[in-house]
């Protein structure tokens, strides 16, 4: 039941997104231009950028893209539509669908981001499978955390600022661990070094996921 609901809602998200392509295009352009601005600001060729800087900068770009991209996930819904959903589907269905959809969106943006980023700023990554795994986990993590926060922020008046300040502290543990893992991947360290960090990342993802699942119905009702 929930599964079918979620599938239908994800489909709806995709259809809506495809109809309003300008929002998607906007996000893609946001990634491109941010990367390009960073490239021009540093004014260096790829090989010269220190791997630590390279890594941190990339994840900060992705973080801001995620915050901007996911912030609108509840703003798009018009008021009338809320009541319509309320009658049709469960709150859990909505949050799960939104999280899955946002995770896919984040993954797309992250992959686009890393392609352009490597193109202009070079690419020191040694362990690609680990890096990609990390990216997938981070897409899931960012989307689970930020979807609930965007739901919270959308209830308040000054939501764009609020979205940023509410999500920074909440996303931080995840961001730090992601940066640590991708640093390991860049250095090509032995996989066993990243094991415990990966486990922690998965654990945080699960905590955030289950909390969002539990808490969202309360948010939805208000």
């Amino acid at each position: 039941m929930l599964f079918q609901e979620v599938l239908a809602l994800i489909k709806k998200e995709f259809v809506l997104e495809w109809r309003q392509r300008y929002a998607l295009n906007g996000m893609i352009l946001y990634v491109f231009s941010t990367v390009f601005i960073c490239y021009l600001s540093f004014n260096v060729k790829g090989a010269q950028l220190h791997p630590i800087t390279w890594n941190a900068l990339f994840w900060i770009i992705i973080l801001f893209t995620a915050i901007n991209g996911i912030a609108k996930s509840f703003n798009q819904e018009r008021y009338g539509r809320f009541y319509y959903y309320y009658a049709l589907v469960s709150a859990q269905g909505i949050i799960v669908a939104k999280m899955i959809y946002n995770a896919l969106l984040m993954l797309l943006l992250a992959i686009l981001g890393i392609s352009v980023y490597s193109l202009v700023l070079g690419n020191p990554v040694a362990d690609w499978p680990l890096y990609l795994l990390n990216m997938i986990l981070s897409a899931i993590g960012f989307s689970t955390t930020l979807t609930l926060v965007s739901g919270i922020a959308s209830k308040a008046s000054n939501s764009p600022t609020l979205m940023a300040i509410l999500s920074f502290p909440v996303i931080l543990p995840m961001l730090l661990i992601i940066i640590a893992i991708s640093k390991n991947a860049i250095d090509g360290l032995d996989r066993s070094v990243s094991d415990s960090s990966l486990l922690v990342l998965v654990a945080i993802n699960l905590i955030v996921l289950s909390l969002s699942y539990i808490l969202f119905p309360y948010l939805w009702r208000s």
Binding site: L166, V170, L172, P173, A203, I207, V208, L219
Partner: peptide, 23 residues
């Protein structure tokens, strides 16, 4: 209601952070 939701969510992510940072 909304601030209660945020409070719970934030505290739950704060705790792992306190254990992760030293590591």
């Amino acid at each position: 209601r909304i601030s209660a939701i945020y409070n719970i969510f934030a505290f739950a992510t704060l705790i792992p952070l306190l254990f992760i940072l030293p590591r």
